[in-house]
Nucleic acid binder design. Sequence first.
DNA 1: TATTGTTATACTCTATAACTATA
DNA 2: TATAGTTATAGAGTATAACAATA
Lengths: 173, 173
Amino acid sequence: MTVSKTAEKSSEKPADAAKARKDAAEPQNEALQLGELSEQLGYVLKRAQLKVFENFLRCMASLQLTPAQFSVLLLVEKNPGRNQTEIASTLGILRPNFVAMLDNLESRDLCTRIRSTNDRRSHILVLTDKGKAVLARAKKLVATKHEARLNDLLGQSNREALLGMLSKIANEF
Amino acid sequence: MTVSKTAEKSSEKPADAAKARKDAAEPQNEALQLGELSEQLGYVLKRAQLKVFENFLRCMASLQLTPAQFSVLLLVEKNPGRNQTEIASTLGILRPNFVAMLDNLESRDLCTRIRSTNDRRSHILVLTDKGKAVLARAKKLVATKHEARLNDLLGQSNREALLGMLSKIANEF
DNA sequence: TATTGTTATACTCTATAACTATA
DNA sequence: TATAGTTATAGAGTATAACAATA
């Protein structure tokens, strides 16, 4: 994404003579027509998702948590004692890709792998005390900065309707 | 994403004695609790977006067009005579990454780069006749297979409401 | 000097095969 | 043999710096 750069140079001085001449010669200039693109659900969905993740990262900057890491912590807290395969597959993360993610969370002392006594192949996941504390702070940041902003933008009932429709797409499409 | 694999083995035979014993010893099994995750807009948004793109690709399999390629063709058709920088930045594609994309579309004879006579640095983009024909077929497939499915799932008015809210997020968040 | 298209490059995500240790 | 965690690896997608041609 071209996040910045589109800084809207509204300084309306004609820049230089060459540009002015060109503008006169070619009246078709400035903003492009999105046309049917703005009606394509996939397109709008992707742009909205990028914006939401961007804002999430900004809100979480002090805790250095990505959306994916936050989702892992949430799921482990809610389901303590599950193994890597269960947590990963629930989140749509492939097991091989989950290894480095857990290495990261474990190195920051947010989460621990414990060898299961029942089945010594599997690693049970639990949050550390620090992990629980960080997650609690993360939840507060998300609620007060991130989700609150969405409520301001859409309104409470619209936000819930949006969530319902997206869930329906995620689960039934 | 673990697209397949979660094939829901509902064959309720106890498999083997070892597993039965384990199940008895550990009653906490089966599906995980998503908990607050299902209320996180970012999480649901991402899952929905992946589903929609997946379906788009299936619907477009016969034309071999990705969502990104489709968006380029749509935008070039609607804005003929614009250069690479303008098309790319409107779509949030960085100029360097747009080069290979255009190489692909041009090699399939869907789109052409034309050196501008005004400014010989820039390449004007236009659809070829084949490009226009393919795009027309693509639009039909999207309308009849892809967007129609969404209408079935959500209903016409909900689908429009969804689009409106996502646009608002994409543009104002 | 600034801009367009381009190359090279790197970093993240995602995906598959294969290894090890356990079962 | 099958499964859990892991390694290695490859492919997309995305990001930045720098170059040649042109303005």
